[in-house]
């Protein structure tokens, strides 16, 4: 005898959409995102590439095919190379400053002290402030009659007070410092997470092995943080090389091109001189450089992760 409990009641079968092949389902699910990405990223890139082979003036709207001549113009254009070189200086400078400062802050935040929690939260502040606010704060500090010069006057060093962002000699340095200030929290938080990933008893073992704090830092912390440092450096480098907003807000590439980098050059070509072909060529070459950096990032990152697997 079959008891009622052993027979399951007939289930209400809902009509279901069925895919004969699972892969079809994946394609359908991916389609909306793919279409959006194609419209807002891929199409503009293709358009920019195409535009690089033409001379086109936004005001006149005539298209004239010139092949690679926009690119060959660039290679002989001293302004292009200056912008490229400025980009390298800005990238290296702000990356190094942000990473070193971030590492120091990360190590300090890893120490045990009162108020560490609030301080950790506070460190993120420069990173979340909008660029425009950062630019205004620092312009205020660095201007000819700004706080920095007031302070220099106060300590009797008027002789060195200059309009920092307006002086060809110091503008790049000031921009690098400001940019590093907005970026060090990213480095600090990332490296802090990496530091906390290192098991404590590795340090204890090293202390018993006779390594003092300095040697624990050089023999353990630095090598164990290498993958994280590499990731921070490469991400920062990629972002810095294509940075536009901060430099534009601070100096607009000036004075006399002292802080003009490739994205600013592209902008000026396109919306100052209306030479869309040239601007596109600048953009494409910028993209090539950044893609190279990204390729290095992925190669080095994968290799480091493998080499420093702590599991």
């Amino acid at each position: 005898m079959a008891s009622p409990s052993t027979r399951s009641p007939p289930r209400n079968r809902q009509p279901r959409l069925r895919f004969r092949d699972e892969r079809i389902f994946y394609y359908v699910a991916l389609a909306p995102t793919t279409i959006v990405i194609a419209c807002v990223i891929a199409l503009p890139i293709i358009y920019t590439f195409a535009l690089g082979f033409f001379i086109q003036n936004t005001l006149v709207r005539n298209w004239r095919f010139v092949g690679l001549s926009n690119y060959s113009d660039l290679l002989t254009d001293a302004d292009f190379w200056l912008a490229f070189w400025n980009g390298v200086v800005f990238t290296v400078g702000s990356t190094v400053v942000a990473t070193v400062f971030g590492l120091v802050i990360a190590i300090l935040l890893d120490c045990n002290f009162r108020g560490r929690g609030p301080l950790r939260a506070l460190v993120i502040f420069p990173y979340i402030v909008p660029s425009i606010v950062v630019a205004f704060i620092w312009k205020f500090i660095f201007s000819g009659r700004g706080i920095l010069n007031d302070f220099l006057g106060f300590i009797g060093a008027q002789a060195v007070s200059v309009p920092w962002l307006g002086d060809q000699r110091f503008a790049m340095m000031a921009v690098i410092l400001i940019s590093a200030w907005t970026w060090f929290p990213f480095a600090a938080i990332t490296l802090l997470a990496a530091i906390q990933n290192v098991p404590d008893n590795i340090y204890e073992a090293a202390a018993l092995d006779g390594a003092g704090p300095m040697r624990r830092f050089t023999y353990l912390t630095l090598p164990l943080l290498a993958p994280a440092i590499m990731v921070v450096v490469l991400i920062r480098a990629i972002w810095a090389f294509r940075n536009y907003d901060m430099i534009w807000l601070l100096t607009e590439g000036g004075p006399i091109g002292a802080t003009e980098v490739l994205p600013i050059m592209a902008y000026k070509e396109a919306f100052g001189l209306f030479r869309m072909g040239h601007a596109s060529a600048v953009s494409v070459s910028l993209m090539v450089f950044v893609t190279l950096l990204a390729a290095v990032h992925f190669r080095v990152g994968a290799r480091l992760r493998k080499a420093y697997d702590t599991s």
């Binding site: 098991p199 008893n201 204890e204 073992a205 090293a206 018993l208 353990l220 080499a307 420093y308 702590t310």
Partner: peptide, 14 residues
Amino acid sequence: DVAMVFQNYALYPH
């Protein structure tokens, strides 16, 4: 001048 063997060994991974 003591040496310690830890539960999870604490070897230097790199």
